[in-house]
Simulated assay, not measured.
Amino acid sequence: YDNALAERVNGILKNEFNLDATYKNLKTAQKAVSQAIKTYNELRPHLALKMKMPVDLYAA
């Protein structure tokens, strides 16, 4: 089950945030991953959380 969750998150990051693209260098790739994770956690509503953002639930 743990692997299924990890694969799901990886799929979302690749598909919604285009992280399967080719980057010029490591620094550019790291910046893209960092921005995608921040958006995923702070700006993107999650269906499993009743369309709330994780950051809002954990702050409460």
Rank of each mutant, 00 (worst) to 15 (best):
V33T: 01
N15E: 11
N15K: 06
A59W: 07
L43A: 06
N25A: 07
A32L: 01
K27D: 09
S34T: 00
K27R: 08
N3Q: 09
M53N: 12
K38E: 10
E7S: 02
A4P: 00
T28I: 10
Q35M: 02
L26H: 15
Y23F: 11
I37E: 03
A29P: 05
A32Q: 02
T39F: 05
K50W: 15
Q30E: 08
M53F: 14
L43P: 07
L43R: 13
L47E: 11
Y1P: 07
M53R: 15
L13R: 00
K14E: 13
K14C: 12
E16Y: 12
Y1F: 07
N41P: 09
P45F: 13
N3I: 15
L5Q: 01
A59E: 13
A59H: 05
K27Y: 04
L57K: 06
N15F: 12
E7Y: 05
L47Q: 12
Q30H: 04
A60E: 14
K50T: 07
F17S: 01
L26E: 14
V9D: 10
A60Y: 14
K38I: 01
I37H: 01
A32R: 00
K24D: 14
L13P: 07
M53S: 07
N25F: 04
T28R: 08
K52A: 10
A36S: 07
S34N: 03
T39R: 12
K50M: 14
S34V: 02
L26Y: 13
N41I: 12
M51Q: 12
N15Q: 14
A6K: 02
T22S: 11
L57A: 12
E42C: 11
Y23G: 00
N25I: 03
R8G: 06
P45A: 11
K24M: 08
D20C: 04
T39S: 11
T22K: 10
I12L: 15
A60G: 10
V9I: 14
N10I: 09
L43N: 12
R8M: 09
V55Q: 07
L26W: 10
L49P: 15
L47N: 12
T28K: 14
N10M: 02
I12K: 08
N15D: 15
P45S: 12
N18S: 13
M51A: 11
G11A: 05
A29V: 04
A29D: 00
L49C: 05
V55D: 05
D56K: 10
L5R: 01
E16T: 01
K52T: 08
E42I: 01
E7Q: 02
L5E: 11
E7L: 04
T39D: 13
A59Y: 12
Q35S: 00
K27L: 05
A59I: 05
N25K: 05
G11K: 04
V55E: 10
V9W: 07
L26G: 03
P54N: 08
